[in-house]
Write a protein that binds this DNA or RNA. Structure first.
Lengths: 245, 245
DNA sequence: AAGTGGTCTAGACCACGCT
DNA sequence: GCGTGGTCTAGACCACTTC
């Protein structure tokens, strides 16, 4: 089975189910529990740790949702084969790059208030022509242009004037302004580069680009950001894990 | 608040939490509960329906996971603004197109056993050079070529010989063979069309294509399918909903 | 202070897969 | 038949937000 010793700290503010999930994930990632191996059943694990079964179940569910464990009724729960990829999360490219140990850089191409076009107004639940923040940035990594990003933000969400957007990620800025992003809807496609995009990204006109549009909503269900982005496909791709539930 | 009357059938094999989630989703989609509106608290809803709170919570969680509801501690649970898009699921393009009312068609370009190349062997946990099923198909919708799909399947998973792959989706075939797909890892990118791809998809060489690679795992954690696909970006894109949890 | 969701307990019965 | 995960109950206490 999977006998790694788990440690619980009942005085910690970290929920018990999350403490277990973290330790379980570590054990899977570092191979203490082998791919394909079956873990102990929920009842036994709960008893070992002095937890109730629902709490143990909740811990396991976290890893099932991440695609690391698979449940099979009447049989048991096993570790999925294959390497674990981080799934797409509600963070920005900036976070991704820093986590990868790269040297990202950002040039702000333009920032200011513009009237919302049809797309922007629809996605941000505004009247067409209403003022919104417009932010264009070019992302670099290791001296290579990587992505051209165009974001639109309702003016009542945050004040983009006098903020150093070259140094801070947009999402970090929103977080610091008290905006809690909870849901995002994305559309990923491909298209040829416009002459402008080609110039900025160092590609020829018509070269394949990976495109992504995203609308993000905060914890009140309000649309707080809409973005249209283009990525150099030789330097960036989207990875995600799907789980059938 | 959100008073649509829910109906429970305790004799149904459908779980109670799922019955509630379905009716709630319908009420949100058809506008019975307006975007931004707060729903009743969990305790009250549970009492109304004669359910325990954990069961009611489980029902709400289903919709939170779908990105339709947002919870806020100390405040309540609200409906997210914006139109609801179906998120990426563990199905095939064929299913997508049929659901959209389109007339999909499939040409099988080639099917047979081939030795696994390095990528295929790694993704399917096989020795390099081991025999695998190779399946190339061209997908059409409304007389337009849409996607060129290349799948690899371990020979012990299913027998592709003497199967009508033009009429049946690959995933349906695998389901019918007793394979239960539970987890898939995808990588979405973009690239220029090869001359061969251009010819089959009716695009010029170098035209932008949307690419997707997917490895799927069954309910035993075993890799059962690896695919490399190319889509015409004017006809197809990937939509997904991210939820921060 | 009051109300909300977040977590946790200690059980119960059922459906399913295997032998 | 037995062991597994799937569902469900009827509570409890806590953390956080708002008033």
């Amino acid at each position: 089975m999977a006998g790694p010793k788990f440690v619980l700290d009942r005085s910690s503010p970290v929920p018990l189910y999350f403490q277990i999930a973290e330790q379980f994930e570590r054990a899977i990632v570092d191979g203490t529990i082998a791919p394909g191996e079956r873990i102990n059943n929920e009842i036994a694990l709960a008893a070992e740790l002095g937890l109730s079964r629902p709490t143990m179940r909740q811990a396991i569910q976290v890893l099932v949702d991440k695609g690391m464990l698979v449940r099979k009724r009447g049989v048991g729960t096993q570790v999925v084969h294959g390497k674990i990829r981080r799934s797409v999360e509600l963070t920005s490219l900036f976070d991704d790059l820093v986590a990868a140990g790269k040297q990202p850089r950002t040039d702000v191409i333009s920032v200011g208030k513009v009237p919302a076009d049809e797309d922007v107004a629809r996605e941000l639940q505004l009247m067409r022509g209403a003022d919104v923040w417009s932010l264009e940035r070019l992302r670099w990594v290791d001296r290579e242009p990587l992505a051209l990003m165009h974001n639109y933000i309702p003016v009542d969400v945050v004040d983009l004037a006098a903020v150093d957007l070259a140094e801070t990620g947009l999402y970090a800025l929103l977080r610091d302004s008290g905006v809690v992003m909870r849901v995002a809807r994305q559309r990923i496609g491909a298209r040829g580069a416009t002459p402008e995009e080609g110039r900025l990204l160092g590609e020829r006109k018509g070269a394949p680009l990976l495109s992504m549009q995203r609308t993000a909503y905060d914890d009140a269900g309000r649309a707080v950001e809409y973005g249209r982005h283009a990525y150099r496909p030789d330097l960036y791709a989207f990875e995600l894990t799907l789980v059938d539930r």
